[in-house]
Write a protein that binds this DNA or RNA. Structure first.
Length: 372
DNA sequence: CGCGTTTGACCCGCGC
DNA sequence: GCGCGGGTCAAACGCG
């Protein structure tokens, strides 16, 4: 399999990469999970990796449940019910929420196919995608036993130099600084997407705004209506400079990584925490945005501003059936405004910490990525 | 010996 | 109802 080679090549990380982040929110993961559940039921006996592993592996049974939650969802087999319930507790109510999952895709232009976000990933599959000569690789986060986060790595069919990494799920464990940064970025995208597609825009939106402020590397955001789910794409491939910023080494954001995600916490959402505790206060920079123009700045930390931006987007969405386009435009504007989040002339609001608190549904997609 | 990766098969959803 | 495509699982293999 030649194709796989490409994906595998990813193991080699490229320091310089441009990235594009796209988020898609879909509530249909059920399907995916459903089959999995079936699988588990039938094969649970054989799942040496997940269950049997007591001896050698770190993976635990819970992993299954977790994954279901993030990626999939509500459907649960009888066997997993209990476990699932537990997992739910960990993951949060996200499953039950209208939008249970968000997908974040990061597009990086680099020869090195692998992106290391500071997290550890285990490859669990590879498949040839139709229309793309390059194979798609599937990875699962192994930093934590029950971490449901998964990612897909694939080369752009059109441009092989572009590596597309899609993250799904929330990390249920603390992430490294670098990872945190990315997580916030993707979270922002996810939140935004979610906010746009769901009712509780206010909270999410706000978050989204903040998030974006933390996405310095994003040069462009796009919402793709063509996709099965709404997809927001932040195209970084256009700005070589961004690549540098993206790299952990060059991260402009002073993220502290702390306990971004309380593993044992009640809510276990990594994103909100990262975002609120670190990004907002730290470096965020949210400039003022004109609702009318959909433009957002990234340099100011002001949440209000962020909100404005969000509002702009929301307004656009609400008023325009083609919210996708509007959103894309808004995001692009925002991102395009600036990539540096450091030094924002704006005032930082500590309140940002609870941005998500207000929202009934936490963002589910917490992802991190980085190209090496 | 253990861990991670590889590869084929299986399952499910969606579209025709 | 059938077929296509996508995604995950699971056993085996290879490497450290």
């Amino acid at each position: 399999m030649d194709p796989k080679v490409d994906v595998n090549d990813a193991s080699v990380c490229d320091d310089k990469t441009e990235r594009e982040v796209s988020v898609s929110n879909n509530a249909e993961e059920d399907a995916i999970m459903s089959k999995k559940e079936d699988h588990n039921n039938q094969n649970h006996l054989m799942t040496k990796q997940l269950i049997d592993n007591g001896n050698g592996k770190q993976v635990c049974p819970e992993e299954r449940s977790s994954s279901q939650q993030s990626w999939g969802s509500s459907k649960s087999p009888k066997l997993e019910e209990e476990e699932e319930a537990k997992a739910k507790e960990q993951v949060g109510a996200a499953d039950q929420l209208p939008f249970r999952k968000a997908r974040v895709s990061v597009r990086a232009r680099s020869e090195a196919p692998l992106i290391s976000d500071g997290c550890q990933w285990r490859k669990y599959g590879q498949k040839m995608a139709k229309g793309n000569p390059r194979p798609r690789a599937y990875y699962r986060c192994t930093m934590a036993v029950g971490c449901p986060v998964r990612k897909q790595v694939q080369r752009c069919a059109d441009d092989k130099t572009i590596l597309i990494t899609t993250y799904e799920g929330n990390h249920n464990h603390p992430l490294p600084p670098a990872a945190t940064a990315m997580a916030s970025t993707t979270s922002a995208a996810a939140a935004m997407l979610l906010s746009g597609s769901t009712h509780s825009k206010e909270s999410l939106t706000t978050s989204a705004g903040s998030y974006f402020s933390s996405i310095p590397y994003a040069s462009m955001a796009t919402l793709s209506a063509s996709a099965p789910f709404p997809t927001i794409t932040l195209d970084l491939t256009q700005n070589p400079n961004n690549a540098m910023q993206l790299h952990p080494k060059y991260f402009p954001l002073p993220l502290h990584q702390s306990a971004a995600a309380p593993v044992g916490g009640p809510h276990l959402l990594g994103q909100p925490l990262f975002f609120s505790q670190k990004l907002l206060p730290t470096a965020s920079a949210m400039p003022l945005v004109h609702h009318h123009h959909h433009q957002l700045g990234q340099r100011n930390n002001n949440i209000s501003t962020a909100t404005s931006m969000v509002e702009t987007v929301s307004a656009a969405i609400a008023s325009d059936p083609n919210f996708t386009a509007a959103l894309a435009a808004a995001i692009s504007s925002i991102i395009g405004s600036g990539r540096n989040s450091n030094n924002g002339s704006g005032v930082v609001s500590h309140n940002g910490v609870s941005i998500f608190s207000g929202s009934p549904q936490p963002p589910q997609s917490c992802t991190t990525f980085s190209t090496n």
